[in-house]
Design a protein around this nucleic acid. Structure first.
Length: 493
RNA sequence: GCGCCGUUAGCUCAUCGGGUAGAGCUCCGGACUUUUAAUCCGGCGGGGCGGGUUCGAGUCCCGCACGGCGCACCA
């Protein structure tokens, strides 16, 4: 390159780096090179190749040829021989490129590639002097040119905002990120495998719903143009799935996204993944055993090794006892709002009490003073019935519902009931919700006549469970923020 | 929504009290046939946005945007 040409390539801010890579791509094309083939058949995962040659001894070489492909991550040396690192989803492998194998011109072309370029290689495994499993490059193909520089090859991509907004860069640069989302996929897959194995049928119910329901939350609204009608994005799958139980499908589950119009936090993303399952002829006690079995199996599937012991049986504590333990208040001795509020004030607990109902106060006590302390898996049983419009009344305890929530790592991970199957009682529960709505509660459950009519056809005794998949992934991968386990978390624009 | 902290080159980091902003990686040219954050020589790039104070602002003040954490809201 002449001095004047070199001057044109002076600056190396981003625009110059891109221009440099474009120019290089152009030179390769002009030399007759293919930079973007339509396919590259016969690729083996790097981890498989590594696994097959674990026993190769230092200095030993083979003439076997294996085809791998991935992104160029590092390059060392030049002249007549060099080492390159190639990365795919399963791992990294070193390449040895030699002039006496490839020829001087071909070696030069290989070494002219930029970090981040996509490369396919046919290579023969060997163990280098330093003990590194390496492929001696016999042939290579450029599979895609990177016009932008990748994140730092050593430090990786650290900036949290960039990692979340540009997840592809996080995945390119950080092996931990790749591993995490592989684990997430394994967890989802293990959940399905468990339910499929127990005779559950996977179903799909509407995401766009004329009426939302099944949870206490504010929905997102949208509009259908052709029907000129308002629709809601679902906040839960509960009501449709129970209609399928009425229909006789007996064991059903749905795993998918729910949407709740709430703030963001380390534990909340506005769209999140939930699995709900419903099982005829079972109650909430049966479902607790099922959750233990399911989570235990899933933890095994990702080889979880951490502080939490997921093996059954998990601790079980009744709601009133949990509040007694965590907040030091006996709910049975304070059965109305003024009395409970007085007890909270007397103990000097810092929480809002103005205008709250008894069940709301009780729930707040649990969330603030009990939930964060539940590190080992724990079922909290028998909730106040007012908090649970779809749960069946407790068979022996006045004012309570047969409901549990499961906690671990200081978070709620699951919620379950003996389902309310009585249409007349369900109708009264909807009426009660209507009363709360009239009083200004924005998170009430709207009246759903179709659901009531379904119950009027007769519903078998049923146990139902909902598990937050994102939170389960957080626990099993030891992440403290939901944004770390969601590929593209909600961010401000 | 509130509070605290942060935002410097494509990436990772420096820059004491206000005085011409440094490095590594990347990239370009050269040397090198067992390196692995390769090494050596030479070269290129920058203060989130908008105001204010000041002779002079990356640095002090105000506002905005975005992010992190905590709180609130909320499963």
């Amino acid at each position: 390159m002449s001095e004047s040409e070199q001057r044109e390539h002076r600056a190396h801010g981003l625009p110059e780096l891109i221009a440099e890579r474009r120019a290089k791509a152009q030179r390769l094309r002009e030399a007759g090179g293919e930079l973007a083939p339509y396919s590259y058949p016969g690729v083996e995962p790097i981890a498989s190749v590594r696994g097959a040659y674990e026993r190769l001894e230092v200095g030993e070489e083979t003439d076997d040829v294996h085809r791998v492909a991935g992104r160029l991550a590092a390059r060392r040396g030049a002249g007549k021989a060099a080492f390159l690192d190639l990365v795919d989803r399963t791992g990294k492998i070193q390449l040895h490129a030699r002039a006496d194998v490839l020829g001087a011109d071909t070696l030069k072309q290989l070494l002219s590639l930029d970090l981040g370029d996509l490369l396919g290689v046919d290579g023969a495994p060997l163990r280098s002097r330093h003990g590194e499993l390496t492929l001696r490059v016999e042939r290579f193909e450029i599979l895609g040119k990177a016009l932008r520089p990748p994140p730092d090859k050593h430090a990786g991509l650290i900036d949290v905002e960039t990692r979340h907004r540009r997840r592809e860069l996080d995945l390119i640069a950080n092996e931990d990120a790749r591993k995490l989302f592989v684990d997430r996929a394994r967890i989802v897959s293990a959940v399905r495998a468990y339910l499929d194995g127990e005779g559950f049928l996977e179903v799909e119910t509407p995401v766009l719903q004329p009426l939302y329901g099944g949870a206490l939350a504010r929905p997102f609204t949208t509009h259908h143009n052709a029907l000129n009608r308002r629709l809601y994005l679902r906040i839960a799958t509960e009501l449709y799935l129970k209609r399928l139980i009425v229909g006789g499908l007996e064991r059903v589950y749905e795993l998918g996204k729910d949407f709740r119009n709430e703030g963001l936090s380390t534990k909340h993303n506005p769209e999140f993944t939930m699995v709900e399952w419903y099982e005829a002829y079972a109650d909430y006690t049966d479902e607790a055993a099922r959750l233990e079995a399911m989570v235990g199996g899933v933890a095994g599937a990702v080889a979880y090794k951490g502080e939490i012991d997921f093996s059954a049986p998990w601790r079980r504590v009744r709601f009133v006892e949990a509040v007694q333990e965590g907040a030091g208040i006996d709910l049975r001795a304070h059965r109305d709002a003024p009395s409970l509020a007085a007890a909270i004030a007397e103990r000097g607990l810092q929480m809002p009490i103005e205008g709250l109902t008894w069940p709301a106060l009780a729930d707040d006590l649990l969330s603030k003073y009990v939930e964060p302390t539940l590190l080992q898996p724990t079922f909290v049983l028998d909730y106040p019935i007012e908090l649970s419009p779809f749960a069946r009344a407790h068979r022996s305890e006045q004012g309570l519902a047969e409901r549990w929530e499961a906690f671990a790592g200081g978070m709620e991970i699951a919620n379950a009931f003996s389902e309310l199957t009585d249409p007349d009682e369900q109708r009264e529960r909807f009426e009660a919700q209507r009363g709360l709505a009239a009083a200004g509660d924005e998170e009430t459950q709207p009246h759903d006549e179709l659901f009531l009519e379904a119950l009027e056809h007769g519903m078998p005794p049923t146990g139902g469970v909902g598990v937050g998949i994102d939170r389960l992934v957080m626990l099993l991968t030891k992440q403290s923020s939901i944004r770390e386990v969601v590929l593209f978390p909600a961010m401000r624009d």
